[in-house]
Amino acid sequence: MGTKKISEGVENGINHVSQTEVVQEYQQKFSPYWELIKEIDLPIFRQQTPPTIVLLEDNYPIPSENSPPPNTPELKKETIVNVAPVELLETNQIIGIYMSRYEITNNASEDAIRQKVRHYRSQGINTIIHGVAGNGCTMYDSEVMQKHIGLQRCPNKFREQWLHWLIDEAHKQGMEVHAYFEKGIKIDHGSPIFNLAKSKNWLVPGIDRTYDGVDHYILDVNNPEVANLFIDMTTEFVQKYPNIDAVQWDDYLGYHSSLPSEENRTPILTNFVQRMITSIKKANPNVSFDICHHNPYWAKKEFAADFDAWGVDRVFIQAYNDNNFREELAYAKKYNGIAITDKQLTRLKEVIDNEKIEGVLLFSLAGNPQNLAVQWREYL
């Protein structure tokens, strides 16, 4: 990896980016900031004292709209860096960091995964929110996927025990692991299940262009096959990994108001989520079901997501639009916390110091949570 500008990892516009398969999605989602992000020379691991951490990089070609499903990301190399541990905050707040579903693992050894977890803890992070599924398929071997889709998991080179190692090491370090179901009920052309979903009429009419430049197709949870796929998938997950601390979905659990529809999708989505939570809790009553979404007014108005009616355990408010930060912070105080990006680190101190904020979730717009884990403490 090394110290370099984000723009140095970009070829021919945005055709190839290191570290994460989902950078393109983040780029489109936060397109107003992207030109600024590309020019930032991020301070990467400047300290020179132990412990030594093994970081994994992968080269991953980001598909164009009409390209076939991507091949499995190939491991590029291991990079050894030295990161100084910091004094841990004495706080009951959740200090969480998001990692895409390829971030900590792809073909990584047990030692590499465990060392990477220890790196995050050494920098004061107490919660890892790691992608475990996305784009219609799981990142782990799934009997449910095999039954419903005929595919055991998303194409990847993950070792079978990857998530067991991650959870075990996190718990040894006094951390929590929250399973992040990325992309929610949205898929794109690159999804391994796209053709199947299209042929089985699993998609609602229209194309979701909530974020400029990326086309998403939304799975219809009013279709029993679709609803049962996700309910069975999440239930299987909390049984397969009984020590997981939480399951989290985000704003991709919703139907944008721009999609054509003659029906009110709000009660349909509510029924689906309630059924999913009931099934999860029956299988594993100790797991928390969390949501990270827009504020409740916007979520319901624009995404048919009335999460106050869902029966979730915790709600984190996305405050990625800094122009409305004060309003979003007011909502966050009424719920369980707030999610901010690496472009809002100047907001961290007031958020951390606020006794009404139970948790802060950090999201790297640049697709580099390793960097963010080192950087965030500078703003307290």
Rank of each mutant, 00 (worst) to 15 (best):
V360S: 02
Y241I: 11
E327M: 10
K77H: 10
N286A: 14
E103P: 01
V221P: 01
Y241D: 02
T52W: 06
V10G: 00
D308K: 10
T346Q: 05
M99Y: 14
V144E: 07
N371G: 10
V221K: 05
R209Q: 15
E39S: 12
E74V: 06
K172T: 10
K334H: 11
F325H: 04
Y33R: 05
R114E: 09
I125R: 05
S64Q: 14
D220T: 04
L253P: 00
Y331A: 04
T270M: 07
Y60A: 06
Q27T: 07
K38G: 04
K76N: 11
I193V: 15
D251P: 00
T3E: 14
K116I: 06
I291A: 02
Y140W: 15
E182W: 08
Y335F: 14
A170R: 10
Y255H: 03
I167Q: 04
G96H: 05
V315K: 13
V247P: 00
F158C: 08
I104V: 10
F194G: 05
A197R: 13
M175T: 06
K240S: 09
T49W: 06
I338C: 00
Q152L: 14
Q28F: 09
H119L: 11
P267S: 06
S258W: 06
H130L: 13
V83Q: 10
V226K: 05
D251Q: 02
N354D: 15
P155N: 11
D245N: 14
G124H: 05
I37Y: 10
D313R: 09
C292K: 05
K334L: 13
V226L: 03
K282Y: 08
K333E: 15
P205H: 02
P267C: 05
N371P: 03
I129W: 04
I53S: 04
N284H: 08
G254T: 04
I280H: 09
H178F: 09
K343Y: 11
W298K: 07
R265N: 06
Q24C: 08
L75N: 08
Q47G: 09
E358G: 07
D250S: 01
P267Y: 08
Y211N: 09
R377M: 01
L196M: 15
P296S: 12
E110H: 04
E87K: 15
W165N: 01
N264M: 09
T210M: 07
D251N: 06
A299D: 05
H189A: 06
I352R: 07
S142F: 09
S258Q: 11
S142M: 13
I14G: 03
H164S: 07
E225F: 09
G174W: 14
V312M: 01
K301F: 04
I280Q: 12
T3N: 14
D342S: 01
N354P: 00
N295D: 15
Q318P: 00
D250Y: 00
I62W: 13
Q48S: 10
K281L: 02
W165T: 03
N82H: 14
R121A: 06
S122K: 05
S288F: 11
N92C: 00
A304I: 01
I338G: 01
S109Y: 13
F158V: 04
K4D: 08
G337V: 03
A170P: 03
V214T: 08
T3R: 13
T79H: 13
F194D: 12
